[in-house]
Amino acid sequence: MADHTIADARMERRPAGPIAGMGGRLARRLEVRMLVLALIIAAALSVMSPYFLTWTNVFNILDQSVVIGLVAIGMTFVILTGGIDLSVGSVAGLTGIVLGLLLKEVPIPLAILGAVGVGGLIGLFSGILVGYFGLAAFVVTLGVMAIGRSLSYILSGQTAISSIPSDLSNIVYTTVLGVPTNVIFLAAMYLLAFLYLTYTKGGRTIYAVGSNREAARAAGLNVLFYSVLPYVISGAFAAVAITFSIAQLLSADPLAGNLMELDAIAAVVIGGASLYGGRGSIIGTLIGVLIMVMIRNGLNLLGVSPFWQGSAIGGIIIFALLVERLVSTRAAR
């Protein structure tokens, strides 16, 4: 580290080529590299299947991105602080049952609010254990995952709740200018999350806490609050996500959301976030979600057995991480 003053001096003298500079800076941004990967996958799939690049299928992909995309937003917040939330799948299952039960008693908006509130409270519980008591996020959320799934079986009486009012499906099937509301909602949430993480004190604090907790504390940032908040957001988004899923299926299944945490973590990681915290972006996560959904969709279109999907997604995750590691170590040298 001591040997970089020369470089400093040299870089000052180097005439800045504006175009090369811009291109270089863009290429250095991980999201851009991942976007390129996404485009390559899209191009390859559209060559292999003429149906892939039709409007119907594009909306299909977007529609399939909604549930996992919403969960991945919360997961991004958690991973940015250096934590992990393994409980999102079972929290989704549990809050889905809560929603189903509430819909029998109260109007739709209140029921949704109740379910999202329960999701947030579960997140608060995990967040306090991790942020205040300093327990390992992996273990805490593993525990909450087991509790959540068990409660959702108990509350549901082991069967799916199918008495969902069909009005709920309006939140999915209404369109604005031809775009379904669930896709619009997803886009709006990503925009909000992006703005929050980039332009607010809270967002920047989440990055700082994940990158160097001690330095953040010494600089007077509220480390405790912003270590807990991401888990609340994650729990709430799990509930929002399952609401959209139930709106499509009109049934709340206690098993819903099973393994959803793995998809969400995969999307965040493909999107370039570091599991150590501090590095990652919401745009990257969106690209990660799209890559995963496109591969699933493409393999379906090509008639590949669904059992191959796991291998394809797993391969992409490892490939993405490997490329990232190779590129970033070369940049660091």
Binding site: T205, Y207, A208, N212, G220, L221, S274
Partner: peptide
């Protein structure tokens, strides 16, 4: 360990106590 936030830009590091 106690001062530098490696994943934030130089500018944001300078602005950390401001935050």
């Amino acid at each position: 360990r106690q001062n530098i936030v490696p994943d934030l830009s130089v500018k944001e590091n300078l602005l950390l106590a401001h935050l």
